[in-house]
Design a binder for these strands. Structure first.
Length: 642
RNA sequence: GGCCCCGUAGCUCAGCCCGGAUAGAGCGGCGGCCUCCUAAGCCGUAGGUCCCGGGUUCAAAUCCCGGCGGGGCCGCCA
């Protein structure tokens, strides 16, 4: 049930009748939203108006015999045909729809079909999730909630990148200070935070070691370059000092142990190689470390209301299974003329292929596409090759309608290359069903974020800080400290989710505490607060459901506005699902909250006379229902009190 | 150099896909509202060359072309 579309149907019927009368085809005229002072729905007829001078008269004539249900007869002004709702009938339609459909109000009449596989977050398991991962995770999770609400089957996957040197740095460091790490975890520290320090220290010390060797050579030969490298090394030493602030004992011990290794980098490469070969000891070590980090991830994600159906280990899916080699073979076979070899290095000329096949529009490729290096000179595969194998695996195993991968916009080239390679392998259909859901990064003013240096704002810290602020604000309202804690956490999560969702994904976010922790209008807490207000009225009135009510003769403008917004909800949700734009929903729920609060100030509900009381209770119940449905889509916790 | 994204009020952003009337929110300013359903609220007010220049159109923030400014990507890293 979609109330707004009922209005559109009625407008279309009227316009159709007009077309018949004028003997022209009006089936393609746009139906637009009117500016408020001109009604609700507006049909621009300027082209028609030039030919027919007496349009207003004809409109009037048709209106006299037209069977209006939810609309008033239109007015013809300035070349626009303007319609407004008939408030009583339309209110009844909207409120009845919400009350009868309940938790499914807002769902498209024709539910979405098919399976949507959403891969998101997929942070490297070496450090805690930070702000950027937060945007990714919240976008991915909300997309999943949105599509699920619309009736689709949805699977969420975390692609766990456990191959590559970065993992080996963390694993090497971990092996050197294993006991201290466990000690920290036992005393309550989050494992991903502890590993984050270990990883950063190991990387940094390794780089210092490398630079120091370089310096030996440069000392006498190139003084300019020498100074440059010194500066670079000083920066690394500074990063190490920063890390020491976080856990002195752990950092110093690790540095000490690392000093005993003459060449850290080659030690790391060795671990990477052995891991890919499936060496049991190395595998045990690496996975022990990764599993600790995953535990930390899950804790953070659970706080934010995010869960996964599957954790996909890159090593298992692409390497141990042999999939990546299989995929490579197929690509070479099918796209042979576009394969170049230099020694063991295999290159796919994606640029040439896309141009020859004219794939630009078909696969939505950027006009410039770099060629793809698929293997190293030692024959091992690269990340993108395994990524391609992963995409193939997803399609073979689950055959999703769409494979939506939430990945930063900076990866648009590799993602476009993967679509091109799927196409070249003969997977034409899959190539078109692979969606790179791109989002811009979150930046902190003045800070260059870097996992390798341990410079980031962890998502946990963000939630904690938000929670602290909320707690200090409401501590006097709750006598039970447990409830205070629970409410504060929920408000913090609502604030963060809302703020990261309210900006369209293709805009970079400049992170500011005050913006993310906005607790006023246009925020998560504002929505939560509005829900609590509605709930509170109903509770005080002793009304759990409204069985019957009648619509008063006249309605206030705030009441009409609310009805209109509520009636638009299914339309908004449908569009959001179609365009994969959760921010449409965010914007709309804010409108509903604003309208409800205006209504709340102006009209008494409990102490109103009948029929106002009954009608307003039904309206409040509808608002509460809609807010609840939408908050569930957005993952904003629903509170009963705050 | 090539490609992608962005440029709208002092600040953060909707609106652009699919062109319609006097361009919208929030924050921050300023001025008001708690004997009454939670003031995380409400009401009022100020604030704009929609980056610039052309073009298409009855009509352009929106579409097309050309600039300017900012971010990102163009690796035998991930």
């Amino acid at each position: 049930m979609n109330p707004y579309s009922e209005l559109v149907k009625e407008v279309k019927a009227f316009v159709e009748e007009l077309g018949r009368r004028l003997n022209i085809d009006l089936s393609n005229v746009p139906i637009t939203r009117a500016q408020p002072r001109f009604g609700y729905i507006s049909v621009p007829l300027h082209n028609v108006a030039r030919e027919f001078k007496d349009l207003d008269k004809i409109v009037k004539e048709i209106a006299e015999n037209f069977n209006f249900r939810y609309l008033n007869p239109p007015e013809y002004v300035n070349g626009f045909l303007n319609f407004d709702i008939e408030p009583r009938n339309y209110s009844k339609l909207v409120i009845d729809a919400v009350l009868s459909l309940g938790e499914s109000y807002g769902r498209p009449e024709k539910p979405m079909e098919g399976l949507y596989l959403i891969e998101h977050t997929s942070a490297n398991p070496l450090h805690p999730l930070h702000l950027g991962h937060g945007r990714n995770a919240i976008l991915g999770d909300t997309l999943a909630r949105l599509l699920k609400f619309c009736g689709a089957n949805v699977r969420t996957h975390f692609y766990l990148d456990d191959c590559g040197d970065q993992v080996s740095y963390a694993a090497l460091g971990f092996s050197l200070v294993r006991d201290l790490v466990y000690e920290r975890i036992r005393s309550g520290r989050k494992p991903d935070h502890v590993i984050g320090i270990v990883y950063a220290v190991t990387c940094t010390v390794a780089e210092i070691q490398k630079l120091s060797r370089e310096l030996e050579k440069l000392k006498d030969t190139s003084p300019d370059k020498y100074r440059e490298v010194i500066a670079e090394r000083d920066d690394l030493v500074a990063a190490l000092a920063e890390l020491e602030q976080k856990d002195k004992e752990l950092v110093l011990k690790l540095i000490d142990e690392l000093r005993k290794i003459p060449d850290i980098e080659s030690e790391v490469k060795k671990i990477t190689r052995l891991y890919e070969e499936g060496d049991e000891n190395v595998k045990r070590l690496v996975r022990e470390m990764i599993n600790l980090v995953i535990k930390g991830f899950e804790e953070t994600l659970t706080r934010l209301g995010i869960t996964f159906d599957s954790w996909d280990w890159e090593s298992e899916i692409t390497i141990y299974s042999g999939k990546v080699y299989e995929v490579l073979r197929r690509l070479i076979e099918r796209a042979f003329p576009y394969i170049e070899r230099v020694g063991n290095v295999i290159v796919f000329r994606a640029d040439k292929y896309a141009a020859d096949m004219d794939l630009w529009d078909k696969l939505k490729l950027p006009r410039h596409l770099p060629k793809v290096t698929l293997t190293r000179s030692d024959g091992t595969t690269l990340y993108i090759t395994r990524d391609l194998a992963y995409a193939v695996w997803c399609f073979e195993k689950f055959n999703p309608t769409l494979l939506i991968r939430v990945i930063a916009a900076e990866q648009q080239h590799p993602q476009a290359q993967i679509r091109t390679m799927l196409y070249a392998m003969g997977y034409v259909d899959w190539a078109q069903r692979l969606v790179h859901y791109a989002y811009e990064l979150v930046n902190i003013p003045g800070v260059k974020m870097s996992g390798r240096r341990g410079r980031y704002v962890a998502l946990d810290d963000l939630v904690d800080e938000a929670k602290r602020r909320v707690m200090s604000m409401i501590s006097d309202r709750f006598s039970d400290p447990k409830e205070l804690e629970k409410v504060s956490e929920a408000v913090a999560v609502g604030a963060i989710r809302y703020s990261l969702l309210s900006v369209s994904p293709n805009k970079p976010i400049l992170f500011k505490w005050d913006k993310v922790l906005n607790l006023k209008q246009n925020s998560g807490p504002f929505i939560q607060y509005t829900y609590v207000r509605a709930k509170s009225i109903l509770e005080k009135a002793g009304v759990l459901q409204v069985l019957s009510y009648s619509v008063p003769e006249t309605l206030g403008p705030e009441e009409v506005e609310l009805v209109k917004y509520i009636g638009e909800v299914p339309e908004i949700i449908q569009n959001a699902a179609r365009d994969l734009r959760p921010d449409y929903v965010v914007e709309h729920v804010n409108k509903i909250a604003l309208a409800f609060n205006s209504f709340y100030e102006k009209y008494p509900v409990i102490h109103a006379e009948e029929p106002y009381r009954g009608f307003r209770l039904a309206l409040v119940l509808s608002v509460k229902r809609v807010l609840e449905n939408v908050m569930n889509i957005l993952g904003i916790p629903v509170l009963e009190r705050m």
